[in-house]
Design a protein around this nucleic acid. Sequence first.
DNA 1: ATTTGCACTAACCATTTGGTTAAACCATTC
DNA 2: GAATGGTTTAACCAAATGGTTAGTGCAAAT
Lengths: 201, 201
Amino acid sequence: MPETTEQIILNKAKEVFMQKGFAGARMQEIADAAGINKAMLHYYYRSKEQLFKVIVEEIVQGLIPRLGDALAGEGSVVEKLEKVIRLYISIISETPFVPMFLLHELSQNRTAFITTMKSRAARFPNFPAFFLQVMNEQAEGKIKPIQPIHLILNVMGMVIFPFIARPLVINLVEIPAEQFDAMMKDRADVVVEFMKNALKP
Amino acid sequence: MPETTEQIILNKAKEVFMQKGFAGARMQEIADAAGINKAMLHYYYRSKEQLFKVIVEEIVQGLIPRLGDALAGEGSVVEKLEKVIRLYISIISETPFVPMFLLHELSQNRTAFITTMKSRAARFPNFPAFFLQVMNEQAEGKIKPIQPIHLILNVMGMVIFPFIARPLVINLVEIPAEQFDAMMKDRADVVVEFMKNALKP
DNA sequence: ATTTGCACTAACCATTTGGTTAAACCATTC
DNA sequence: GAATGGTTTAACCAAATGGTTAGTGCAAAT
């Protein structure tokens, strides 16, 4: 069964929005990519803003809950962080434009965008509980002392940065794309080990 | 002595471009911010593209050489990385939009932009030499084994990520801006220690 | 005093861009 | 087979946007 026009539009729009951002995306380009008339975009999704919103909701929907799951379950801090690292690197590997897209749009402070994200991210990972666990394990001497927020910034930074810095590494450090991508296969293992070493008391 | 109009334009354009990106920036907005007629922008800088180019050149100029210096001098791997961490966190703290701006524009693959960056970043930090040093110290057992490229991705990720994720943390994790910024004051110390622990053999 | 040349503005222009409309197409229903 | 209703298109529209132009103001040079 072939995709419905509505679906085709959504998929193509996702590609264009993710690579160009809201400001850089053109309705005409989306229509061309979808192989349909520009009027169809408005027929199904009313406006650029609206289409954008639907896409953001979809993306966030598929991203936040899984992070929540990884942090909420059983396991030590190190075990949970390992889960988060492996999970996110594997997700992002399949949709490498997502991080830059979300972070860039977030940095624009478009209230509509932030509202949309908030509504979809309501059940945002249970950070407070995780922060407590970090402090407890530190008190017990199981891991080196570090403020929880810094810890997750460190981990998320190591996980996400390579994906958004890929063009920088490839174009300016001039490492060939294939070599870079090959290297990224080991990335999860490397980050997990780095994190474990850094936390070992 | 008051700033020249040319300078005012450049400064205001820098603000607008850095916060909105090339696609999101409007010539009219720059003109308004500079308190002058839109025609002046073209009088001094010919076109949006041209103005953009000048700004990128300025930004890159003030960024790359200093990284080169930090990596080129004397000192062990850990000492050099500590220098890089402290240097970049202090630079970015004063111009927090720069990383997102550069990374986002880079991700757009606008050839003009990449060419401009390349020409200004020609003397890019002497990475090969640093990579060698890393491998030597590993062979001597001075630091834990890790592929050099992963090591710098880890460090740069920890340094840069917090700045580009600031809106995410503030808006979605709902940590107040002041609290976040206060925390960032310790950031360099935290990252340095994390890195040292992770590399300690 | 007149000319010269740079700085500057108001008004304008052409193109792009998001969005609309009226009509055509086409399968299903009556 | 005519009517119905959702889908699609070509053509169009108004606003926004990057860029231009003709001319004004004004200080320094002649």
